[in-house]
C-alpha cells in the first residue's frame, strides 16, 4: 500500500514551508494581544462562576422569574418572533412610509387645498342634483295638498298621452315582451 503525501510530511518539513513560517511569525507577533484577550476571557468566566455561586444573586434571579409571566411558551414565542423579524421589519418599513406620507399630506397646505378643491368638484354636481330632487318633491307635495280634484277616468286618459308616462309604459311593455319570449323558449 502506498503512503500518502501527508503521511510523508515531518515536523521539520512542515515548519520549513514558507506559508507556515509566515503564519508562525504573525502568530508570535500577536501573542501579547492573544494573551491579553485570554486573560479578559478568564476574568469573565471567573466573574460568571462567582455570580452563579452567589446565593443572594441566585435568589434574586429565581424571585424575578417566579414573579414574572415568563414561561417556556414565552421563550418559544420569542424565538418564533425572532424568526419573523425580517418580515416584520419589511412591514414596519411600509407602515413607516405610509405614516410619513399621511403626515406630509397633513402638513402640506398646497396639497390640502388641492384635495379640498377636488372634493368640491365631485361634490357640487351631486349636491345640485340632490337640491333639484328635494325642490321637485317639495313642489309636488304642495300641489297634492292644494289639489282637491277627483281623479277621473278622463284624467287617466290624459296622463297616458304625457311623454314621460309614455316613456315609462314603453319600459313596462318591453319588460313584458322579453319575459314572455324567455318563458316560451324554456
Amino acid at each position: 500500500m502506498e503512503r500518502s503525501a501527508f503521511e510523508e510530511q515531518t515536523v521539520e518539513t512542515v515548519l520549513t514551508r514558507p506559508d507556515v513560517e509566515q503564519a508562525l511569525i504573525a502568530l508570535i507577533d500577536r501573542l501579547p494581544k492573544i494573551e491579553q484577550s485570554l486573560r479578559r476571557l478568564e476574568d469573565a468566566v471567573d466573574f460568571g462562576m462567582a455570580t452563579m455561586k452567589d446565593e443572594s444573586v441566585k435568589e434574586k434571579v429565581d424571585a424575578a422569574i417566579d414573579n414574572s409571566n415568563i414561561q417556556i411558551e414565552t421563550l418559544e414565542a420569542a424565538i418564533k418572533l425572532t424568526e419573523k423579524l425580517p418580515m416584520l421589519l419589511q412591514v414596519t418599513n411600509q407602515l413607516e412610509s405610509m405614516f410619513s406620507f399621511v403626515q406630509d399630506v397633513y402638513h402640506d397646505e398646497q396639497t390640502k387645498a388641492l384635495i379640498e378643491q377636488r372634493i368640491e368638484e365631485y361634490a357640487v354636481p351631486a349636491k345640485e342634483k340632490a337640491e333639484w330632487t328635494r325642490e321637485m318633491w317639495t313642489e309636488v307635495q304642495q300641489r297634492v295638498e292644494q289639489d282637491d280634484r277627483h281623479i277621473t277616468l278622463f284624467s287617466l286618459m290624459r296622463w297616458i298621452k304625457e311623454p314621460s308616462v309614455q316613456h315609462g309604459l314603453k319600459y313596462v311593455q318591453a319588460t313584458v315582451d322579453v319575459l314572455n319570449e324567455r318563458t316560451i323558449k324554456r
Partner: peptide
C-alpha cells in the same frame, strides 16, 4: 387626475413612494 399628483408631491419626492 386626483391621486397621482398627491402621491408625487407628498410621497415620491419625500422618498416614501
Amino acid at each position: 387626475k386626483d391621486f397621482l399628483p398627491i402621491m408625487y408631491w407628498n410621497g415620491m419626492l419625500k422618498g416614501t413612494m
